[in-house]
Design a binder for these strands. Structure first.
Lengths: 348, 348
DNA sequence: TTGAGTTACGAAAACGATTTCGGACGTGAA
DNA sequence: TTCACGTCCGAAATCGTTTTCGTAACTCAA
């Protein structure tokens, strides 16, 4: 425990002026040399660049931003509906992908948070205030007026998993993913398949489409009682709902859950009833989070490629930033892979 | 799929000049009014403030930063040794805490990443370049020269879980936590307690101290074969190590793991040997991540208060920023709570 | 009336970078 | 020699904000 003494080295910012001084040229020339403008001789450019390196020069972002309106900074907006914050098992990986790719390409990442108390600004105002070059939006309530304002602004915006007009989107292939997962279950001989889906959203809708598509292919029309709804990531709700399903007269042989966490909750319910997975009841998850491979049996799930979703979102927003006229605002779908764990048994 | 047409509304930044214009005063007066300087009349101040609100004015951070050297931006440096990136179950919650508190206090959070290829700068250079007001450092290799350079700089730095000279630290109470967890195990009658700890680090060392302290209190000296080491978060290593421990002549009745993930790996090994938890073998985790409460039986673990660690780190770095002379650089320890799951049985 | 002391405001410099424009100089052709 | 042209560089404006300093106007006591 010691009082701050402030005797330590100051890492002084070396400016263009410093370089100009030692090179005996003007600031303008230094700037042009470092930015590879054509009206500076090759010899000068080399001299200046080597001096700059030597002095440990890095452009002051604040000054540059003031003049050029470019900050090399990308905002990330994330407000979870599940109260899990950044620990959101899906989003944290998307964020990691974003971080990796933006860093690779020389951009930084800044959170555009929920407005603070003192100076409450909207998301867009926050972006303008911070001069971010673009924004990636995920997990928010896309009907919120503030989000609409942001998406409709001139700012380059990329959304994750939610298609909006005139705005680029990176999304997981929910239809195909759920189709393939269901097809896998059916290929194991299951015919009495229950599906507990998440709360309504574009993601949920797509997965429903995938589920029913696969079922229809086999000519199966599941009874209404087999289709249920719970919140995402709510293992307790999954537990209760599982008990309900297993109490049915004609009990399903396989239960499909909205995500891997819910699936674990379901497994607990099944075991607490004295049944076992997958011998008595089969289950599937969704997402393919790390924990799905750790529990026993490993959960059969559709593994979304969240890292790639994040990376692609970064590429997309940077493309919109750097080539505003040519960049196309479309929907990029990222494929995943079926992970065959041990939670789905065979029905003879 | 449509070509960007750029017909959308521009959210024009309203500047001090705009306000000055409509109020018929100078820019200087507007600035002073908004910053509550004393040399502007009350009437003027009100007029200017209301106009500013009306026009949706927010100060341009870039311009302000250029002049004042304050960006209201805090850097967060995080490089995981476990390759789990932001999905790191521990860190993602710390980050969430950081995010919540910094937002509350009007600061933003920017990642200070690993240097990118094109312009490779050190962490400190990155901070200087970005003009962050302070940095929070977590999970990095604290022996790295770059990290040392950063910590020793004049920049306000707060580290998480690693005490360094002349630098504020927020850490979990590892000694007490492990002591209490071990005491709990012993109180259940266990005497043959194995401890699989993580790779050496200050955190690991503290927990070892806690473990042996509790054991000594009971006069127990565990055999060397009971003390093992694996990487953190490596459930497969935990699986293998558990098999080894259970193959011992004199098998332990309880195995303590370095974290909850490893504990789950251990549970799998125990079950695969035809034994059950906690009837045949008891287990404990560490951290208290959400999944510990989802698996069955729930894992008895020491729940670190990671959200609060993050929030406290934010408070600390902001204190160092706003009161550089008076702020004290010390080590703040955040307590956790014992979570009594069902993974530890009673030995009669 | 005079002088000192407030009060309320504006002019201007500064932060560090980019960019426009113009000028000095050298080269080659007529 | 002269003129047109290209090459290389610098002066100065600019981005939006903060801050110092100067000053006009007003108050009040002597």
């Amino acid at each position: 425990m010691s009082i701050e003494t402030d005797t330590r080295e100051v890492k002084a910012m070396t400016s263009l002026k410093d370089i100009a001084q030692v090179c005996g040229v003007s600031v303008a020339t230094v700037s042009k040399a470092l930015n590879n403008h054509s009206d500076v001789s090759e010899a000068r450019r080399e001299q200046i660049k080597s001096k700059a390196r030597e002095l440990g020069y890095f452009p002051n972002q604040a000054a540059r931003a003031l003049k050029t309106r470019s900050t090399m900074d990308i905002g990330v907006l994330f407000a979870d509906a599940h109260n899990s914050g950044l620990t959101h098992p899906y989003f944290s990986q998307v964020l990691e992908g974003l971080k990796i790719r933006t860093e690779e390409r020389g951009y930084d990442l800044t959170f555009i948070g929920i407005k603070s108390k003192r100076n409450k600004m909207t998301f867009l105002e926050h972006c303008v205030y911070r001069n971010v070059d673009g924004v990636v939006v995920a997990c928010v309530d896309f009907n919120q007026p503030e989000v609409l304002e942001l998406v409709r602004s001139r700012l380059p915006v990329v959304t994750i998993d939610h298609v909006m007009d005139d705005c680029a989107t990176i999304s997981s292939n929910n239809v195909e993913g759920m189709t393939r997962l269901t097809q896998y279950v059916l290929s194991k001989g299951h015919r009495k398949v229950a599906y507990i889906h998440g709360r309504p959203s574009s993601t949920t809708n797509e997965r429903m489409v995938g589920f029913f598509r696969a079922m229809e292919e086999k000519g199966i029309d599941p009874p209404e009682a087999y289709i249920r709804e719970i919140p995402y990531l709510d293992d307790e709700a999954a537990y209760d709902m599982t008990l309900e399903l297993l109490a049915l007269e004609d009990r399903p042989t396989c239960i499909m859950y909205p995500d891997d966490y819910c699936c674990i909750g379901g497994i607990n319910a099944i075991r607490d009833m004295g049944l076992s997975v997958p011998e008595d009841v089969s289950v599937t998850g969704y997402d393919g989070v790390p924990i799905a491979r750790v529990v026993s049996p490993k959960i059969t799930t559709y593994q979304q490629n969240m890292l790639e979703i994040g990376q692609t979102a970064a590429d997309k927003v940077i493309e919109l930033i750097e080539r505003p006229r040519t960049a196309i605002k479309n929907n990029t779908v990222i494929g995943g892979t079926l992970f065959e764990g041990g939670s789905v048994g065979t029905i003879k």
